[in-house]
Design a protein around this nucleic acid. Sequence first.
DNA 1: TAGATTGTTAATCGATTAACAATC
DNA 2: TAGATTGTTAATCGATTAACAATC
Lengths: 226, 226
Amino acid sequence: MEDLEKSREKAANYRISSAVIKRLPRYFRYLRELLEAGRMRISSGELSKMMHVTASQIRQDLNCFGGFGQQGYGYNVKYLYSKISEILGVEEHYRAVIIGAGHLGLALVGSPMFSKRGVTLTALFDNSPDLVGKEYGSLHIYDIAELDTYIKRNNIDIAVLTLPRMYAKETAERLASLGIRGIWNFTNVELDLEELGITVQNVHIGDSLMQLTYRVHNADEIEDTE
Amino acid sequence: MEDLEKSREKAANYRISSAVIKRLPRYFRYLRELLEAGRMRISSGELSKMMHVTASQIRQDLNCFGGFGQQGYGYNVKYLYSKISEILGVEEHYRAVIIGAGHLGLALVGSPMFSKRGVTLTALFDNSPDLVGKEYGSLHIYDIAELDTYIKRNNIDIAVLTLPRMYAKETAERLASLGIRGIWNFTNVELDLEELGITVQNVHIGDSLMQLTYRVHNADEIEDTE
DNA sequence: TAGATTGTTAATCGATTAACAATC
DNA sequence: TAGATTGTTAATCGATTAACAATC
């Protein structure tokens, strides 16, 4: 009771910094590994060695959301994992569709990434007559023309954009008007629909490639990982 | 002359923070767009409006590498773009191979991302007899057994890992021993080969999905984009 | 020259780390 | 109880923003 209120209060009282938010998925990954390895408990000190961050940072980060540990003991792996999952929205069990059934879209369908994070893929959409009507994995490929009806009928929370960049903007705006809550954008168009109340996560995979080339190019002068 | 020395000196004297490095690809993108749109010059003020960052930050960031602007005028788009390209290593014209010819690997082959960033893909590798020997795009799919010979013979700088996670670690270490300079890692295994002098860029696409679910889950309390 | 805009220093703000009292 | 380790406050460090002199 107290615990619950305490964590609610904390999360509500102040803004969680985006530095912290970015680290949460990494905690999630490490904790799942520990869980799968059968570990019952972990201290911030030991976790810090595994993750190459300071123990202080781990304790600070976790305490943004509440006191999940116990003095003299550390953290219960299972409990902490469940709390982080909750914070990240894994428990919400979002429903998602993929728009664009090219290689990238199909690669995403094939991966366990979604199910591991509580997201259920329900359909694919494409505009190519060659693809429409086919099944892929356990998913049906619908004509993009059916998007509006489908989204409304099936209570879809998230749309994954893996379509050609020329369609990105119009599709995103259409999705916004259909009441979608989040867009995971793989096109390198920079979408910003925050003013429409839609959360957009832009992937920009090319930026990652450029960070790599930068670091290779300047390899002699760098040691700082990240 | 002076300019060149000045910028060399700057980059050498102190460490460029990773906050700055992460922003460079975004400047690169916006500058290319301006260039393609035929813009000759841009001021930090105007660019700041386009990019939703402060003009101060833009000027600070660029000045890490040298004075690329001119008082009273702003920045010459073409010149600035060429400088940023240089800084990011685009001019190095790296040669890369993709290891793992699944959907993700093939999606990458099909995209103009590499060529736009001065990276040339030269080959695909896979271990499946169904794929080995085939052509995809203009690329040949080689047997993974031929990796060692190929890498050494063809002066490959970068390897893109789009293979199943179970092979990630051993392949990465093998690549390191073959003298590869950078690894772009799409498996969700966290590779760290910095002590071997290899630059590893981990993509962790699942973390991006979790940031999205976090933000959707907490949509009411957030305004801060990033 | 007057106006504009950079390059750069100084001020502010936020994030990380260190330290330690609380407590299991 | 003694030992361990958290939660949290205080100190440090770094990144961002503001301001303005330099200068095109």
